[in-house]
Design a protein around this nucleic acid. Structure first.
Length: 441
DNA sequence: TCTGGGGTCCTAGGACCC
DNA sequence: TCTGGGGTCCTAGGACCC
């Protein structure tokens, strides 16, 4: 405990942050106890994969999440590298959230393994923050067999730093236990913050760290001496304001309950890079199917469809098209994605391809939509089948317009490509047309 | 050594409307 | 003939988080 007087009031430390320890790897060990004590990692294969989660045994070898799997295996050849069972992690995550919800409805989910809670509502119950933190940690341990770190502070910034500080650490290859719960006292919090590197702040990643270090600002205490206007000049309005506030220990972000999703997507890095349009279209259709299913599961339709390409040299590119109506079916998403892909020069090989949708509307808000199920009685079937066929036609025409717009937007490039290719180019474009408007479109 | 997949948010420029 | 300013929406790219 970072604090001589840990039992502070709800007014002083209203924000609680919980972070489960090596979550994915811990779930794998629970489901297969023979793994206990071994260096277990969840992550992609050794070629083109990264570590998503590493047990503390693996961390003692220097393995970290985000590290390429090939590096991890070089650091520790006896690593048990598992591909990941995300449905299983989601089940555990739901149980975790259930325990939190038992204590307060006022919590925000961050990924599967973290939550922020705003404990102010517990005031009337006469509860103390430290008691709540200890109880939650105890229940997660006893009911789920999962360890976690808990931070208590005046805001999210310190809450997150505190939970991190509460966890076990690897020092010189040796595992050192953490306190489990850390309470941050307002009297000493700035001293602590000042001694941290700028990269410890939320929102400061590798690029911003590099930029700050180039300005001679490597520690939070350095940052705290710089004017907000100077930071805004270098980092823009939003990031500049944020850096100035965080450097003073101020963080006005609220705990947001039930945040609605804003995009859904599927990315895939291929073991062997794709070459040419045809392979890209096949991959895009597979992604479109998964994305469409997720949309329907959530009763959503999407107006914007994007494709993302990463070439072998790590050059990234995105193309998107927004339509005046929403779609939630594989054919529509695949058709637009394909049209977008035809606007990209795919002569370089592609290591990653993604299909994403956004700009959601509720299904019943959509004015132009495909009709789904038919009615029960034979009469209903007939009447509804007519409606279905008319609606389908309207939807198909609307979709075709959207695809035409893609072609129109990139028309000049398409003409240039065709001209360069000569007569063969015309053939290629004809082939593309069949892909876009084929039987399934 | 060589870099995933799920996302969110911000910026800047252009088109368009009033 | 030459000239606003504000607001919204869309696109593309980039940084960041878990």
């Amino acid at each position: 405990v970072l604090n001589s007087q840990p039992d502070l009031s709800l007014d002083q430390v209203p924000i609680l942050h919980i972070d489960l320890d090596s979550f994915f790897a811990s779930v794998e060990v629970l489901d297969d106890p023979t793994l206990r004590g071994k260096p277990v990692c969840v992550g992609g294969p050794s070629e083109r994969g990264v570590i998503a989660s590493a047990s503390y045994e693996a961390r003692q070898f220097g393995v970290r999440s985000g590290m390429p799997s090939s590096w991890a295996l070089r650091l520790c050849p006896e690593i048990v590298l598992l591909p990941g069972r995300f449905w299983r992690y989601e089940e555990y995550s739901e149980k975790f959230h259930g325990i939190v919800a038992d204590v307060t409805p006022n919590y925000e989910e961050i990924g599967l393994d973290e939550v922020f809670c705003d404990l102010r509502g517990l005031h009337l119950l006469g509860r103390r923050p430290l008691e709540v933190a200890t109880q939650l940690r105890g229940r997660i341990q006893s009911e789920l067999n999962l360890a976690c770190g808990v931070g208590l502070a005046r805001n999210k910034l310190f809450g997150k730093l505190a939970s991190k500080r509460s966890k076990p650490r690897v020092v010189d290859g040796q595992l050192v236990a953490g306190p489990g719960v850390v309470v941050v006292d307002r009297a000493t919090e700035i001293e602590w913050l000042n001694e941290l590197p700028v990269g410890a702040l939320w929102g400061v990643g590798p690029a911003t760290t590099r930029h700050l270090e180039n300005l001679g600002l490597s520690m939070v205490r350095d940052l705290a001496r710089v004017d907000e206007s100077t930071l805004i000049a270098h980092f823009g309005e939003s990031l500049g304001t944020m850096l100035a506030a965080y450097a003073r220990g101020e963080d006005a972000r609220e705990v947001e309950v039930d945040r609605a999703a804003k995009s859904i997507g599927r990315d895939e890095t291929f073991g062997q890079s794709l070459v040419g349009l045809d392979q890209a279209v096949v991959a895009a259709r597979a992604h479109a199917g998964i994305v469409a299913r997720t949309l329907r599961d959530r009763q959503l339709m999407a107006r914007t469809i994007s494709v993302k390409i990463r070439f072998d040299d790590w050059d990234d590119l995105t193309r998107s098209q927004t339509m005046p109506f929403g779609v939630d079916d594989e054919d529509a998403i695949a058709s637009v994605a394909t049209a977008l892909l035809t606007t990209v020069d795919l002569s370089r090989s592609v290591r990653l391809l993604g299909v994403h949708v956004s700009n959601f509307m509720q299904r019943n808000e959509n004015t132009v939509q495909l009709a789904f199920g038919l009615g029960d009685s034979p009469t209903n079937v007939k009447v509804q089948a007519e409606i279905t066929s008319r609606e389908r036609q309207v939807a198909r025409e609307a979709l075709r317009e959207a695809i035409d717009e893609v072609r129109h937007r990139f028309g000049r490039d398409a003409v240039a490509v065709a001209a360069e290719l000569g007569d063969e180019g015309i053939e290629v474009r004809g082939q593309r047309d069949r892909d876009v408007f084929g039987p399934s479109a």
